[in-house]
Amino acid sequence: MNGPDFLDRQLGQPAAALRLRAQRLDLIASNIANAATPGYKARDLDFKAALAAAEGSGNTSGAIRYRVPVQASLDGNTVELATEQTAFAENAIDYRASLSFLGGRIQTIMAALKGGE
């Protein structure tokens, strides 16, 4: 009952969601960092598709997609700073919520393992 398999079953989706939120933050931060790089193509993570893939095959690379800009830049860069900043802020809030949920799940498991002391 105990061991890595038990923890994987108990923390599976919340832990996967936290990893995916972190991956999305990295992608958006990369977009923001390259806002002035000619030819840079902004990318984003389709969270729902990535979560479904993480639960299935575990391969989430197909959920990373290029962002379609509202207005194309003359230098080929598709980063729109306002869009990226909004996406970053929203994802950061979702990351904190996932972290809180996972923390609650861990506390519940710890209490159960200790026998409800």
Score class of each variant (00 low, 15 high):
Ser57Cys: 07
Gln23Gly: 10
Gln13Val: 15
Leu102Pro: 02
Gln107Glu: 13
Ser100Val: 10
Leu45Ser: 03
Arg65Lys: 13
Asn91Ile: 04
Leu81Asn: 06
Leu20Asp: 00
Asn59Ile: 10
Gly103Glu: 13
Arg9Lys: 08
Ala42Lys: 02
Leu27Phe: 06
Thr108Ile: 08
Leu18Gly: 02
Ala16Pro: 02
Ser57Leu: 05
Gly62Asp: 15
Gly56Ser: 15
Leu45Tyr: 01
Thr60Pro: 02
Leu20Lys: 05
Arg9Gln: 10
Ala50Asp: 00
Asn77Glu: 08
Gly39Val: 07
Ser30Arg: 11
Ile109Arg: 05
Glu90Tyr: 01
Glu84His: 06
Met110Gln: 14
Leu81Pro: 04
Ala16Asn: 08
Arg67Phe: 04
Thr108Phe: 06
Arg96His: 11
Glu84Met: 11
Leu20Trp: 01
Asp94Arg: 11
Ile64Ser: 01
Ile93Phe: 12
Arg24Ser: 08
Pro38Lys: 11
Ile93Cys: 07
Ala53Arg: 03
Gly104His: 07
Ala35Glu: 14
Phe101Arg: 09
Thr83Asp: 14
Arg19Leu: 11
Leu74Arg: 14
Glu55Lys: 10
Ala50Lys: 02
Ser61Ile: 06
Arg67Thr: 14
Leu102Phe: 11
Glu90Asn: 10
Ile93Met: 14
Asn77Lys: 03
Ala82Gln: 12
Leu74Trp: 09
Arg67Cys: 05
Ala29Lys: 03
Leu51Arg: 10
Asn77Leu: 06
Ala97Phe: 09
Asp94Lys: 11
Ala33Ile: 11
Asp8Lys: 06
Ile28Gln: 00
Gln107Phe: 03
Ile28Val: 15
Ser98Cys: 11
Ala29Gln: 12
Ala42Ser: 06
Ala53Ser: 07
Gly62Trp: 05
Asn31Glu: 06
Asn77Ala: 05
Leu113Glu: 12
Ala54Pro: 01
Arg19Lys: 11
Leu45Pro: 00
Asn59His: 08
Arg96Asp: 12
Leu25Ala: 14
Gly62Ala: 15
Pro14Ile: 08
Gln85His: 09
Ala22Met: 11
Ala50Phe: 01
Asp75Arg: 07
Gly39Asn: 09
Asp75Ala: 09
Ala63Val: 10
Lys48Tyr: 05
Ser61Phe: 02
Ala52Gly: 13
Ala82Ile: 13
Gln23Asn: 10
Val68Pro: 00
Arg96Trp: 03
Pro69Gln: 04
Thr37Glu: 05
Gly56Tyr: 04
Leu11Phe: 13
Ala35Pro: 03
Ile32Val: 15
Gly76Ser: 10
Met110Lys: 12
Ile28Trp: 00
Leu18Val: 04
Asp46Phe: 04
Val79Glu: 00
Asn77Phe: 04
Thr37Phe: 05
Ile106Tyr: 02
Ala17Ile: 05
Thr108Cys: 01
Ala63Lys: 04
Ala97Val: 15
Arg105Ala: 13
Tyr40Pro: 04
Ala111Met: 13
Asp26Asn: 15
Leu113Lys: 10
Ala112Pro: 01
Ser73Tyr: 04
Ile64Ala: 02
Thr108Lys: 07
Leu74Ser: 14
Gln10Trp: 07
Arg65Gly: 01
Ala54Leu: 03
